[in-house]
Simulated scan of single mutants.
Amino acid sequence: MSKPIIYFLCTGNSCRSQMAEGLGRQLLGDEWDVHSAGIEAHGVNPKAVEMMDEVGVDIRDQQSAVIDRDLLKRASLVITLCGDAKENCPVTPPNVETDHWGLFDPAKAEGSEEEVNQVFRDVRDDIKRRIESLKDHK
């Protein structure tokens, strides 16, 4: 039997949803088929790759993609990570559970390199906590 699909959606599928996909695969991969996408595909943010490396999650080979309507229809759980994705996501079928996490876009962080890195870390760690809370979700 195939695993249920969890689909993380964001604006550009470059930071938040990429981190969520990587963490989701690491933490939920035995139970869920984990994917991510965006309203647009902006490419994987190099800073997201760097900050995920810090916690031992390699997202280098993940691809930035636009929302796949077929995958959206087959998903068991769709999680939007920003207001833009929540407002502009294609309509999900009534049988698909949805949630919204509303996370700050770390790509918009300003300040020194260390301050920007800390914003990425904070968002990454927030995503990790939220994904860990999904472990018992069915």
Rank of each mutant, 00 (worst) to 15 (best):
R25Y: 11
R25L: 13
R25G: 11
R25Q: 15
Q26V: 14
Q26P: 13
L27Y: 14
L28E: 10
L28H: 12
G29K: 09
G29F: 06
G29Y: 08
D30E: 15
D30H: 14
D30N: 15
D30L: 12
W32T: 06
W32K: 08
D33F: 01
D33H: 13
V34L: 05
V34H: 09
V34G: 07
H35N: 13
H35S: 09
S36Y: 00
S36G: 07
A37G: 09
A37Y: 01
G38P: 06
G38I: 12
G38E: 06
G38Q: 05
G38Y: 04
G38S: 10
I39S: 12
I39W: 10
I39A: 07
I39M: 14
I39R: 07
E40F: 10
E40G: 13
H42K: 12
H42G: 14
H42P: 11
G43C: 07
G43V: 04
V44I: 12
V44L: 06
N45T: 08
N45V: 02
N45F: 03
P46I: 03
P46C: 07
P46H: 07
P46S: 11
K47W: 07
K47S: 09
K47H: 13
K47A: 14
A48W: 00
A48Q: 02
V49G: 00
E50A: 14
M51C: 08
M51Y: 04
M52Y: 01
D53L: 06
D53M: 02
D53K: 07
D53A: 09
E54D: 09
E54A: 11
E54Q: 07
V55N: 03
V55S: 08
V55R: 06
G56H: 03
G56P: 04
G56V: 00
G56D: 09
G56L: 02
V57W: 02
V57T: 00
V57Q: 02
V57M: 06
D58Q: 06
D58F: 07
D58Y: 07
I59E: 01
I59Y: 02
R60N: 13
R60C: 07
D61G: 11
Q62L: 11
Q62A: 02
